[in-house]
């Protein structure tokens, strides 16, 4: 396949209007189609994860914004996070974030075709690399949050 052909295929696959391929456009598709089997239900749960991640991001921005307003405002916000409704939200957000990570990183191996030293990199290798990256990123967050920000007073 020439480069031009590869490029046009890329455009065709990525840039086609969603009006043409989205499931919801299938004629006669009922709104409860995703309850037909567990794979569809898992797909819908995975998509829902983005809602929890977005709300969690907005909550994180609120917490960061309070750093400007002083210690008392920040500590009050942090103390509120220990209440039951917030605890339930955090447990849900964590569960959905895990589901998002696992499904997204598995999908990472299915998407691109990579070549290394003239040989095609297998789907398993790409997925393993993605999970290794997840482990390294998680370790960085762990170290930053456990040991970061320490000073003479802490």
């Amino acid at each position: 396949m020439s480069q031009i052909q590869a490029n046009s295929a890329w455009v065709r696959n990525i840039a086609v209007s969603p009006n043409r391929y989205h499931r919801a456009d299938e004629p006669g598709l009922v709104p409860t189609w995703w309850r037909a089997n567990r794979r569809f239900a898992l797909y819908m749960l995975r998509e829902l994860a983005s809602v929890f991640l977005a709300v969690w991001s907005l909550r994180l921005l609120r917490q960061l914004n309070l750093l400007r307003q002083g210690e008392e405002a920040y500590d009050t916000f942090v103390a509120k996070q220990r209440r039951l409704p917030w605890l339930l939200f955090h447990i849900s957000a964590f569960s959905f974030a895990l589901l998002h990570s696992v499904t997204f990183l598995i999908a990472a191996g299915k998407g691109p075709t990579l070549h290394f030293m003239g040989r095609k990199v297998s789907e398993r290798t790409i997925t393993a690399g993605a999970f290794a990256g997840w482990a390294i990123a998680s370790l960085a967050v762990l170290l930053a949050l456990l040991f970061g920000g320490r000073g003479e007073d802490t």
């Binding site: 955090h90 964590f94 997840w134 990123a137 998680s138 967050v141 762990l142």
Partner: peptide
Amino acid sequence: AAMFAPMQILLQD
């Protein structure tokens, strides 16, 4: 989000 969010939510929240 896949790389960083789970560990940050686990530790921070």
